[in-house]
Computed example of a mutant assay.
Amino acid sequence: MLSSLGMNLHRSLLALLLALGLSGCATTARKTDTTTRVERPATPAPAAQVTVRDEGNPSTSDEALAALASAPIYFTLDSATLTPEAQDGLERLAQALRQRPQARVNVSGHTCELGTTEYNLALGHRRADIVRTYLVRLGVEPQRIAVVSYGEEKPMDEHALEKNRRAELSVRQAE
């Protein structure tokens, strides 16, 4: 009888732990796409937003760099994978940056409000880092690219969560 009671208690504890583990997973965002893959998925998105701050005299080459601006790089829910359109925009940006060795880039990663604060900060960092990694693979020196994650702290649109799942780029000319 005692061993039967112990066995039932063991099964009950195992079931309770399993239920707690599953319920904990339901309250946080899935962490399935944690790699920094640079592949071309089927989902389209706009190219990178580029803001140019020139502390010197503006020139036509700086205008060409500013012309690469169109929109933030958008990501799907719980993803840090670049779309083909984002890759195309980053390729044009990398080409412009290779021609301007004095230019510096800041990449900020953002998320929607789903998930915990800690998870969103990590996801925002992965998004910014995938952009940085892609630019480095295209020949931009890593020391010229800074990344920061704001997680859910700086939403673009509080009513359209998909607009908050993004990375933004800011390009400045060093003196």
Rank of each mutant, 00 (worst) to 15 (best):
M1F: 06
M1A: 09
S4E: 14
S4F: 11
L5G: 06
L5Y: 03
G6L: 11
G6N: 10
N8F: 12
N8D: 14
H10D: 13
R11K: 14
S12D: 14
L14G: 03
L14I: 04
L14T: 11
A15P: 01
L18H: 12
L18F: 10
A19C: 13
L20F: 10
C25G: 04
C25P: 00
A26C: 06
T27S: 06
R30S: 11
R30K: 06
T32E: 11
D33I: 04
R37T: 07
V38W: 03
V38S: 04
V38M: 05
E39D: 11
E39Y: 02
R40D: 07
P41S: 08
P41G: 05
P41A: 10
T43N: 08
P44A: 11
A48R: 01
Q49W: 08
V50R: 07
T51R: 07
T51H: 08
V52Q: 05
V52N: 06
R53F: 06
G56N: 06
S59E: 04
S61A: 03
L65W: 03
S70G: 05
P72Q: 12
Y74I: 04
Y74W: 09
T76K: 06
L77C: 07
D78P: 00
S79F: 06
S79D: 11
L82S: 11
L82G: 09
P84H: 14
E85R: 09
E85W: 00
E85D: 14
A86T: 03
Q87G: 10
Q87I: 14
D88C: 09
D88Q: 15
D88Y: 13
G89D: 13
E91Q: 14
E91L: 13
L93C: 05
A94Q: 12
A94V: 14
L97D: 15
L97E: 15
R98P: 04
R98A: 00
Q99N: 13
Q102S: 14
A103I: 09
V105E: 15
N106I: 15
V107F: 15
S108N: 15
S108C: 15
G109W: 15
T111E: 15
C112G: 15
G115L: 10
E118N: 13
Y119A: 12
N120S: 12
L121D: 12
L123P: 03
H125D: 08
D129R: 05
I130H: 04
V131R: 01
R132G: 00
T133W: 00
L135K: 03
L135R: 03
V136Q: 01
R137M: 03
R137S: 01
L138M: 01
G139A: 02
G139C: 01
V140L: 00
V140D: 03
V140E: 02
P142N: 02
Q143R: 02
R144P: 00
R144C: 03
I145Q: 02
A146V: 02
A146H: 04
A146C: 01
V147Y: 01
V148P: 00
V148A: 11
V148L: 09
S149N: 06
Y150M: 05
E152F: 00
E153L: 08
E153C: 01
K154S: 09
P155K: 14
M156W: 08
A160I: 12
E162A: 10
R166P: 10
R166C: 07
E168T: 11
S170Y: 03
R172M: 09
R172K: 07
R172G: 04
Q173R: 06
A174L: 06
E175H: 02
E175V: 00
